[in-house]
Amino acid sequence: MASDSRLVAFKDVKYNFKKYSDMELHDFDQIFLDKIDHEIKIEPRDWMPDAYRKTLIRQISQHAHSEIVGMLPEGNWITRAPTLKRKAILIAKVQDEAGHGLYLYSATETLGTTREETINDLHSGKAKYSSIFNYPTLTWADIGAIGWLVDGAAIMNQVMLCRTSYGPYARGMVRICKEESFHQRQGFDILYTLSQGSKEQKEMCQDAINRWWWPSLMMFGPKDSESPHSDQSMRWKIKRMSNDELRQKFVDMIAEQVKVLNMTLPDPELKWNEERNHYDFGEIDWVEFWNVIKGNGPCNKQRIEARKKAWEEGVWVREAAKAYAEKKNKRQTSNGALEAA
């Protein structure tokens, strides 16, 4: 009977089968697709296909991991920022990234996983994070390049995601976009100051741009033709623009901004194309791209070790907070009992 297959599909879910006894799986699916087509947001307690849920858990949690791991390359320079103002600004930026990670972990939890499972997946290597954070920050100029290029690329992606179909993810993105714009400005500001400085400072600026340009382009993911998840993500309006579209927008924007810095982008094939009304640019080194994603980038091991260490060294804090809360609770209830007596 049809109800048996529904029991298997909706395991653990409290659904009133009598109420929906006439509805089949494809009815729920049709209602879901109608919502998507009509730009109605999907909220945590709405029915959604398993695959939609799974792909969102994957995408949102990996986005969250990226924010947290992203704190590491920049945190590296907090103690060596050139001025107090730069130090305070960098601390504020890194603090923002922690907050962004939280919004995204919270959004992931709405889909039915626990924080612990999500964090375990990062530590075990099951879950990925943005490959860009596997590169080292070698100079102060790197901090500028990250703010301008990496946050710039992230903003492009995140503005698009403000219109994603899953409610909590979209709302998280709106909040994140508001905070992210200062990140890009502070990055550009750092590079601009360097570009107006001494010969060594200008060289340092150009060197950082040279090292961060291609990895920033890789942030947009594989070419559309080689992106396994894209079609489904577009149908479900999780993704609103393709990898290549976003990448092109980014190139067009940065190719103009770099002129203000009097610097160049390390791409001999970068050229304005009058017919296309876009910049042509060179081919990404896809071997490097897949290698870094697979875990063979310069800092992959370091990043995961740092995260594991932070988690393990924080166990006593979490246990102490829990014990303290229980102790306070007991004291309050026993006081209440005394007063009543």
Binding site: D12, V13, K14, I57, G112, K126
Partner: peptide, 15 residues
């Protein structure tokens, strides 16, 4: 990535 789905919905805390 294999994800174990436990459909304990956010906001849908069982009684």
């Amino acid at each position: 990535m294999n994800i174990a789905i436990r459909k304990h919905f956010y906001g849908d805390i069982p009684d």
